[in-house]
Simulated assay, not measured.
Amino acid sequence: MTSNGTGTHGATLKDTAPQEDAPVVELRGAGKSYGNIRALHGVDLAVRPRQVTCVLGDNGAGKSTLIKIISGLHQHTEGEFLVDGEAVRFTTPREALDKGIATVYQDLATVPLMPVWRNFFLGSEMTLGPWPVRRLDIARMKKTADDELRNMGIVLDDLDQPIGTLSGGQRQSVAIARAVYFGARVLILDEPTAALGVKQSGVVLKYIAAARDRGLGVIFITHNPHHAYMVGDHFSVLRLGTMELSADRGEVSLEELTNHMAGGAELAALKHELAQVRGVDVEELPEAEDLQAPVAASEETP
């Protein structure tokens, strides 16, 4: 995205320069219920330009429901959902895309046997010529894809190679570059490093930082506190559908973040139970007070 609020492909977006610190996307007390099942409750989240907001949580914590609300797949049933300070209620993902909110899911929504450049423009192909003899503008799509990938620091020798031949980290990077090109202001990344090794995870984290530096607000969904702490500016931890922790980078250490993610209070209770079992040595485990302290601090009311 360029500094004047225009996507590199020419889509005009709302100029956020006068209020650089104002949240692009904000949830206030948001929640989602499916009948009698409350999947999300009382969630506050603010996504600002040039920031990586990390949302952490174990399986069943509510991360997927949160993604679906912001990306327009599901509607919230309580609280407020604001984009540029205005309340919205998306009914389709297309409405979220029109507001500059793009989501990159774990499966990446790519066609493995298609070339890289075809996947880059999948569903939004460039064409030339009049109807009904309009045809794909292959040369322009290849050049544009190559230019945009290089702008993100991604250099591929052959854009005609099937995208399925790329590594997992490279495919994630192509998906990120594609979202930037098509005018995303907020980029949601759903567990992008979950199935990757250490080296490929590093590649993805590098391009997450590159997206932030280009002015995007990034929502990084992960269950790995170490990956989150490498690039995150703000950390939100979900547990059983509620926000257990919301803190800026300077307010929480990696150790505290890990304890919140692991469930410090639950681990303390587990240590107490293990102490009653013969043959289990709990002397080397952290003290219960140490595990509970970060959790207790987050539960204090102002």
Rank of each mutant, 00 (worst) to 15 (best):
T8I: 15
G10P: 00
T12W: 08
T12L: 06
D15P: 08
T16Y: 08
V25S: 01
R28C: 04
A30Y: 05
G31W: 03
K32N: 04
V43E: 02
R48E: 10
G60Y: 02
G62F: 04
K63H: 03
K63L: 03
K63P: 00
T65D: 03
T65K: 01
I70G: 00
Q75G: 07
T91N: 05
P93Y: 06
P93K: 02
R94M: 04
R94I: 13
A96V: 02
G100T: 10
G100V: 12
I101C: 05
Y105V: 14
P112G: 00
V116I: 10
N119M: 01
F121T: 10
F121N: 08
L122M: 00
E125I: 01
E125F: 06
L128G: 09
P132V: 13
L136C: 09
I138M: 04
K143G: 09
D147K: 01
E148P: 03
N151Y: 02
V155K: 07
V155E: 11
V155N: 11
L156M: 09
D158R: 03
L159D: 02
D160R: 03
P162L: 15
Q170A: 12
V174M: 11
V174I: 15
G183R: 08
L196T: 01
V198F: 13
S201D: 08
V204Q: 00
I208W: 05
A211R: 05
G215A: 08
G215V: 06
L216S: 01
I219Y: 01
P225I: 07
A228H: 09
M230E: 15
L245R: 04
L245K: 06
A247L: 07
L254C: 07
A268L: 04
E273T: 06
L274M: 13
L274R: 06
A275N: 06
R278Q: 12
P294G: 08
A297E: 11
E299Y: 10
